[in-house]
Simulated assay, not measured.
Amino acid sequence: MRHRLKKMSRQAGKALDALEYTGDVPVQKTRVTATTYGPDGAETAVMTDREIPRVPSGDGPGKVWIDVAGLSQAEEIRRVGGLFGVHPLILEDIVQVGQRPKIEDLEDYLFVIVKAWRYDGSAKELFESQVSFILGQKALVTFREADVPAFEAVRTRIASGKGRIRNMGADYLLYALLDSLVDEHFLALEKVGEDIEDLGDKLLSDPRPTDLETIHKLKRETIYLRKSVWPLREVVSHLADGESALLRPETRLYFRDLYEHVIQIMDTVEGLLDIVGGMVDIYLSTISFRLNAIMKVLTLISTLFMPMTFVAGVYGMNFKFMPELSWPLGYPMAIGIMLLMSGGLFTFFKLKKWI
């Protein structure tokens, strides 16, 4: 699984400005996309050798969203970070992607780290990637190590003019992107919940030893989801109730609503953890029940054959004087006694409701 224990610390002897990407997403060329927007329209362009657009100044309505996809090219990260005077330690946190979701208020800008989750239906696995935000007065910069479908959905909304994004500040764009990431959490939880439900039905009908591995995988994914969501609650709470001048009062209301969504995700994750935690007991109980049923059948067969074995053992003794041995009806009599005794035992078990 590609989203778990990542290398977080830089190698010994590495300089602070080395900016070594520590993720496991396949290395790709860093792509910088700039979207300039306002009430009158929006324009998106991929920045190659062109200069990154300057941040709008003054009280005008223009805003800019700079999206950096791929964190392997240190020079591009520095180039974009230099636009805002981002501290080298912040740039280091951006490329070392094993970070815990967090928020830092550095007066001139807000620095936010969250996790994006994507469910792979073919592999039935969750994949995690890190997303970092730098929020300025009129600009938002996002750094992501992998593709995030939620970002494209927000970019489409900006281009089409739907919603409030064009008429609101850069802080509202931060809310829109975080809200889309939280929605992806819901989608991931829904898929994991379906996998858990399917596995639960399978454990009751046809449990197999390989199901223990599946249980462990689902439990591990759910635990990592919880580790991602709990600090996310702190991040959104700070955005909703913090004192940063970069967050407008009218936007804080949206962050409070987002906080309720995060709490709902936390409750869902805790519920899934409880279900997955009990699956081992379900597996063991089902296996034990099936084993008991098999042993019950085998014990019944053995008990019904015991009288037959007893009669066959008596008449198998090598005594010279056994009257039944020379009697023409001796064999039918022995068979009848065997059937009668076994039938009596079977009737007794039925009356006792043991079978």
Rank of each mutant, 00 (worst) to 15 (best):
T214C: 00
A176E: 05
D171M: 04
L187R: 03
H216T: 07
V192D: 05
D198Y: 11
K202E: 15
H216F: 14
E184D: 15
L173K: 01
L178N: 05
D211T: 00
L204D: 09
V182P: 11
R220A: 10
D206S: 14
L212M: 09
D198L: 13
K191V: 00
E194M: 03
V192E: 05
Y172D: 02
Y175S: 04
V192A: 00
Y175W: 11
D206Q: 13
L187F: 07
I215K: 02
L187V: 10
E197H: 08
D183Y: 12
L203M: 12
L187S: 05
G200S: 13
E221V: 13
L203P: 01
K202S: 14
P209A: 04
D211R: 05
D183M: 09
L174N: 00
L173V: 01
L189H: 01
Y172P: 08
H185G: 03
D183W: 13
E197P: 03
Y175T: 02
L189C: 04
K202R: 15
R220L: 11
I196D: 04
E194S: 02
L187K: 02
A176Y: 10
I215L: 04
T214F: 00
I215S: 00
L199Q: 06
H216K: 03
L173Q: 00
E221S: 11
L177Y: 09
K191Q: 12
L199W: 11
K202Q: 15
K219H: 15
D195S: 09
L178I: 14
L177S: 05
R208H: 13
E190D: 12
L199C: 06
P209N: 08
L212T: 05
Y175E: 05
P207W: 14
L181N: 09
L173E: 02
K219S: 13
V192R: 01
E184A: 15
L204H: 14
L174W: 07
K217V: 07
E197Y: 05
L199K: 08
G193A: 00
K191G: 01
L204F: 15
V192I: 07
G200K: 09
E190T: 02
L177F: 11
T210V: 11
L187Q: 06
A176I: 12
R208S: 13
L173S: 03
A176W: 08
D201A: 12
L181Y: 10
D171W: 07
K217F: 12
D201T: 08
L189M: 05
P209K: 09
K219P: 04
Y175G: 01
S180F: 08
D171I: 01
D211A: 04
E194H: 05
R220H: 14
I196L: 08
E190G: 02
L173I: 03
V192P: 00
L203W: 13
L187P: 05
T214L: 04
D201G: 11
F186W: 09
K202W: 09
A188P: 00
S180Q: 12
D206F: 08
K191F: 06
L181H: 08
H185T: 08
L178A: 09
L204K: 14
H216D: 01
L204E: 12
Y172S: 02
E184L: 12
P209C: 02
L187E: 08
L189T: 00
Y172A: 01
L189N: 02
P207R: 06
D206A: 14
L212Q: 04
E213T: 13
L173P: 01
V192S: 01
L203T: 06
